[in-house]
């Protein structure tokens, strides 16, 4: 397996959508290729970091204001 072939399956590997046979091949490549191992680990970390940090926080005060505005109009519908 080449690095390009490995990268083509990266998402399936991360999302755990690979067959047992393919997983074995991918893991074999990982044992031989430090670059792909780093790529896999740091891609996982990238996802984890984006998942655990809200970068567009909606402040409670704004939230309440928006909800009030929405509901006021809905009641008039």
């Amino acid at each position: 397996m080449t690095c390009t072939e490995f990268l083509a399956q990266l998402d399936e590997l991360i999302d755990d959508e690979v067959t047992v046979a393919l997983r074995a091949d991918l893991e074999q490549h990982l044992r031989e290729c430090e670059h792909c191992e780093i790529t896999l680990n740091t891609t996982r970390k990238t996802i984890e970091i984006y998942r655990s940090h809200e970068i567009y926080e909606l402040p409670e005060s704004v939230r309440v204001r928006l909800e009030k505005a929405i509901m006021a109009k809905c009641r008039k519908c």
């Binding site: 990268l7 780093i38 680990n41 740091t42 970091i49 984006y50 940090h53 809200e54 970068i55």
Partner: peptide
Amino acid sequence: GSVPRDLADWSPDPEALYGQSEMAEIL
């Protein structure tokens, strides 16, 4: 397939390198 690859490994705990708001800015 031609994504350039930064091959350096990351710090074991990248989140410890930055404060909350700095991190949010980076992201």
